[in-house]
């Protein structure tokens, strides 16, 4: 497995526990030891304000609560991020249409490629 994410600090904002577990496993496989998870907009905002991250992935719809506030906080802190969503195409937060979108469900190599893109950008 590719270990290029070694030493990178990734924030995963995802509220579904089983989905989050799978993402954590994928990231571990990719060599990323430092994964921080947030399940709510509130948690995510606190983490972004108190810790440094190299990249983030953001579920577009945290149990109905739109995540644009988290997207804005990440942008303000200069943290590159991608959206993850089960929605098709639309519903991208205003002002963040240029961010990469990972469609659920996704494979490990798709996650890897997108993170590589974020980290090299």
């Amino acid at each position: 497995m590719d270990k290029s994410l070694s030493g990178r600090r990734i924030l995963v904002v995802e509220d579904e526990m089983l989905v989050l577990m799978n993402i954590e496993d994928m990231l571990a496989d990719l060599g990323c030891e430092s994964v921080t998870a947030a399940a709510t907009v509130h948690q995510a905002l606190e983490l972004i304000g108190s810790q440094d991250f190299d990249a983030a992935m953001l579920d577009m719809n945290l149990d109905g609560s739109k995540t644009h506030r988290v997207a804005e906080a990440l942008a303000a802190h200069g943290v590159p991020f991608m959206f993850a969503t089960g929605y098709v195409g639309r519903d991208i937060s205003d002002g963040h249409q240029d961010r990469p979108v990972l469609k659920k469900p996704f494979q490990c190599h798709q996650l890897d490629e997108m993170l590589e893109g974020l980290l090299s950008g």
Binding site: E16, N61, V88, K104, P105
Partner: peptide
Amino acid sequence: LNHRVKNTLSTVQSIVSQ
């Protein structure tokens, strides 16, 4: 429905993976 199906598929993916 699409949102739920995609989330459910992601959950199933996780169950299989585990």
